[in-house]
Design a protein around this nucleic acid. Structure first.
Lengths: 186, 186
DNA sequence: GACAAAATACCGAGTATTCGGTATGTTTTT
DNA sequence: AAAAACATACCGAATACTCGGTATTTTGTC
């Protein structure tokens, strides 16, 4: 079968570059994302990459923003599907933190991004703004302190997977269950 | 006053090198720790550094181990000074997580190290072993699940400082207080 | 204690490699 | 023909690490 002449799809190449960057960051960490490797995985040369992005920073920033957006929509979906209005946001936040598979691409990528946030605080701002907006919308809870504790614990649950070498999954599950129960009485 | 001829103090130079590495890591992140800069800050040339350490990795690993040891002794001191035997370990863990000043050298260094743990899991093992040992010693609590939740929340409290751009310190303080109360009834 | 010998501590100029980025072509689409 | 979408060939700076040499300290011997 004679293949049709391949038409160039620049926007697809662009997406490929962003995906390649995310892939490398999740596999080995943000520091291993080099322009040469990203270009190679996207089936393009270095020159091609710099045709689509004026600098490496632009590429990375756009990749991070795209991922954060996907996390946001994930949480928003969980909220929409939740029949119980009490503590919806906090519960969705908890589920999304706990649900991550330690080896998953997303979890490792999120780790790389949070790391980058520490170095570059302006990266954290869109996320903080979104959080604040969600809080205003949903945080009309009876016990906002308990809600914040649940969210702190959710972060801890996530970090355990991110940084710990071996984990007691039974205890972890039990802690998650109790936290979930707490969100019902918010 | 004529200064005495300066005697060489190799072990002091060694410490200076380790301190310089920690300093740079806490100021700008582990990725900015270069052998040249470390040597410069320690008042030594690159060659001098590699006389004391066979590779950069050896230098970094030793620096990390030293810092982890200091955190361990900090927690152990808190335990010793605590008159209430109930939930001692969990309380000390919580205090040490909450107490960190966001801008402090130690907190930023710890961030850099935890980041490195994700990339290099063998770095996390000594810490995990120590944690397990502490758990066996102190975790004879009535409610081990609640204890683990408090510790998860402590990690979350720490991470908020590490990664967030702006923080509600009042709410943070309130959450800390309630967590402290919980440790009294463990 | 004097003194040579050996070991240690350190210097500083390199080396090979990697990386982000550029300048300039060549092909494809419009 | 003009513009967009790439490829090719470089550049300059940075980095971990090496290596030959020198200064300093310690050790062994009388």
């Amino acid at each position: 079968m004679a293949s049709l002449p391949r038409r160039k799809q620049p926007q697809q190449v662009r997406r490929n570059l962003l995906n390649a960057a995310a892939e490398i960051a999740s596999e080995h960490g943000l520091e291993f994302v080099t322009t040469a490797e990203v270009a190679k995985r996207a089936g393009v040369t270095s020159g091609g990459l710099f045709h689509h992005f004026p600098s490496k920073k632009h590429l990375i920033d756009e990749m991070i923003n795209a991922f954060m957006k996907s996390v946001e929509t994930c949480i928003e979906d969980l909220i929409k599907k939740d029949p119980d209005p009490r503590g919806r946001f906090t519960r969705a936040y908890l589920v999304s933190s706990y649900g991550y598979d330690p080896r998953s691409v997303d979890n490792r990528l999120l780790g790389a991004i949070i790391t980058a946030m520490n170095r570059d605080p302006e990266l954290a701002e869109p996320w903080a703004d979104w959080m604040e907006k969600q809080m205003e919308k949903y945080d009309q809870e009876k016990d906002p302190i308990l809600a914040s504790i649940v969210r702190y614990a959710a972060d801890g649950l996530w970090m355990e997977i991110f940084a710990a070498s071996h984990v007691d999954f039974e205890k972890r599950q039990a802690a998650f269950q109790r936290l979930m129960d707490w969100t019902r009485q918010l």
